[in-house]
């Protein structure tokens, strides 16, 4: 019964995003870095590979660096959007006055948000892989025909996804609590920058929630890579997400719907 009700909530939640910015954002944002890498490798692939390492190793480095920096912003924007769509349309009271439990409405939105992050990361992985093969078609000598384990890349994306849920839950809750767009964005930028500073030498930087996704990511495409080898930040992230999402769910039961 509860599952059926949740299915209704999720179905309505997905439907409302048609023809919206977030729909295209979830689809196209993961293409941003692969598109730049495609141009870079088509134009200067030889020079890049000549600096050392295999073609796939270079592509993975070119992908993970910018992605680690940009992905938190993506998470913050998606969290803002899935909640401000209700604030801007004045529809919180509409959805909470429907014959579904408050927990159901909350879980529907939370699960769709989590699914958006998951889909984007998987798309990012697949598009990065596609870049290698597209470059191979244009320049077969570059080395993209060498063996490469796609499942390692997708597995790494999945690990990053799990490691993102920690700070992702914070931004989901923040965006539910406030209509203010600047506050969650400011907290996000503060979190990202403070992690980048602290990770330079502070021994407890590994507990910083805005760094879990960076610390869980491994050198895909190299011999040293081993899937599930950096699990501490993933566990920390999942624990944080469980706590924050639970607090948000309890808060939803009590709060006044304006």
């Amino acid at each position: 019964m509860a599952i059926l009700a949740l299915k209704k909530g999720i179905s309505a939640e997905i439907y409302k995003y048609r023809s919206t910015f977030v729909f295209w954002f979830v689809l196209l944002a993961p293409a941003f870095i692969p598109a730049i890498n495609l141009i870079a490798f088509l134009r200067r692939g030889d020079a890049i590979v000549a600096r050392g390492g295999t073609a796939w190793e270079n592509l993975m480095q070119f992908s993970s660096g910018p992605a680690n920096f940009l992905f938190p912003f993506f998470v913050i924007i998606v969290a803002l959007f899935v909640n401000t769509i209700e604030s801007n349309s004045n529809t919180w009271k509409l959805i909470y006055a429907q014959p579904l439990s408050r927990l159901n409405v909350f879980c529907s939105k939370m699960l769709v948000y989590i699914a958006m992050l998951f889909c984007s990361l998987m798309l990012f992985g697949l598009m990065t892989y596609a870049v290698g093969w597209l470059v191979h078609l244009a320049n077969p000598d570059l080395g993209f025909a060498d063996p490469f384990n796609l499942w390692h890349l997708l597995g790494n994306c999945f690990t990053i996804f799990l490691a993102t849920l920690g700070f992702g839950s914070i931004h989901f809750y923040l965006s539910q609590r406030t209509k203010n767009l600047i506050l969650p964005l400011g907290i996000g930028v503060g979190g990202i920058v403070s992690f980048m500073i602290l990770v330079q030498g502070w021994e407890y930087a590994r507990y910083h929630p805005y760094g879990y996704h960076v610390l869980s990511s491994g050198p895909v495409g190299t011999e040293n890579f081993s899937l599930w080898s950096h699990m501490e930040p993933v566990y920390l992230s999942l624990a944080l997400a469980a706590v924050v999402f639970s607090i948000a769910a309890i808060d939803t039961q009590r709060k006044r719907i304006i």
């Binding site: 309505a12 439907y15 409302k16 048609r18 023809s19 919206t20 769509i85 349309s89 004045n90 529809t91 009271k93 509409l94 429907q98």
Partner: peptide, 15 residues
């Protein structure tokens, strides 16, 4: 309470 980016029919479909 209306999703302005959707049509009237689509708004009703959400509910």
């Amino acid at each position: 309470s209306i999703y302005k980016h959707l049509t009237g029919r689509q708004n009703l479909e959400v509910i």
